[in-house]
């Protein structure tokens, strides 16, 4: 077993293990922490696949952005610790079969189709290629993505502002 494979298995286990923690924990904050760990593991997997830029972007966007947002969501919707004490209803346990069905489909049907490439592991960085591609071939797509982000920001801001206005109007009524 080479070093790289060892690291790969280590980070895979970290990713999947943290995901399992999210599945079973009852505390939202623990789930968030586990998600942090899982996302960091995914970032590490990216780096192992030679996508170092993506790894860092994963950390910045997911952890610096999405996770912080989720934390705000947790804080905003926080009522009392007891309300988060949810359990998996028995009726729902059948739902676990559905993802298993998916995994089964994938493993039985899709994996034999994959090409077996066996190059030696290469350290070559793809930063410069990534940069060139961003600013040449994929530039229109990123412009559009930027526009999408703008729209989303405005929309979210609008939803938030209506919330604030409702609060204010309620306050006036009282």
């Amino acid at each position: 077993m080479s070093n790289i494979l060892f690291f790969f298995i280590f980070f895979s286990v970290q990713t999947i293990g943290s995901a399992v923690v999210i599945l079973f924990t009852r505390n939202v904050m623990y789930a968030v922490t586990a998600l942090l760990s899982s996302l960091l593991g995914v970032a590490a997997l990216f780096v192992l696949a030679g996508a170092d830029v993506l790894g860092v972007i994963q950390i910045i966007v997911y952890i610096g952005g999405v996770l912080v947002l989720t934390l705000f969501g947790v804080m905003y919707t926080y009522q009392s610790p007891k309300r988060y004490q949810e359990s998996i209803p028995h009726k729902k346990s059948v739902f676990i079969l559905i993802p298993l069905l998916f995994v089964l489909v994938l493993l039985v049907q899709a994996l034999p189709l994959l090409p077996m490439i066996d190059d030696p592991y290469q350290h070559a960085s793809k930063v410069e290629v990534t940069g060139m591609l961003w600013l040449t071939e994929y530039l229109p797509i990123f412009e559009w993505i930027g526009f999408l982000l703008l729209v989303v920001l405005i929309g979210a801001g609008w939803i938030g502002s209506t919330l604030v206005q409702e609060d204010k109007s309620k306050g006036e009524q009282v």
Partner: peptide, 17 residues
């Protein structure tokens, strides 16, 4: 290079979870 199959298995499991 890590076999693509491994990545796919990890992805599948993560997706399932």
């Amino acid at each position: 290079m890590i076999p693509i199959t491994l990545y796919f298995i990890v992805g599948a499991v993560l997706f399932a979870i």
